[in-house]
Amino acid sequence: MTQDRKIKIIVAKPGLDGHDRGAKLLARIFAEAGMEVVYTGLRQTPEMIVETALQEDADVVGLSSLSGVHMYFFPRVVELLREKGLDDVLVVGGGIIPKDDIPELKKAGVAEIFGPGTPTAEIVEFIKKNVRTRD
């Protein structure tokens, strides 16, 4: 009997920001949507996040930042993922992120940015639609 393929998602808080209400809430919502959620906790460096994604064979990496460091962390995570050959991993971000920053983040390879107030169902939907098919 083959198992249903589960979406595996890393939910990570890069940097020193300790506001994890959103990250934890989403971890719970993703699990309710049937995903397997690896929650890393706070104070993650891009290297830690990418190593986790590698070992867990994650389909998605979700990053949350409220302290204004997204322009440094998000592109760096994408860059490191690519270096490790994980170029099919979907990277999404959320938190307090000014709209003017979004085009640059997308150019850097972040698939989507979800600001405060985004319905969680929309985020789940996006992930389900855009997640890689694993060979």
Binding site: G15, L16, D17, G18, R43, T45, S67, V69, M71, Y72, F73
Partner: peptide
Amino acid sequence: LPTQAGYDSDHPLSMGE
């Protein structure tokens, strides 16, 4: 945040913060 977490500004975890 580096100050709050007790790191100097040149600590690796302070990057970007």
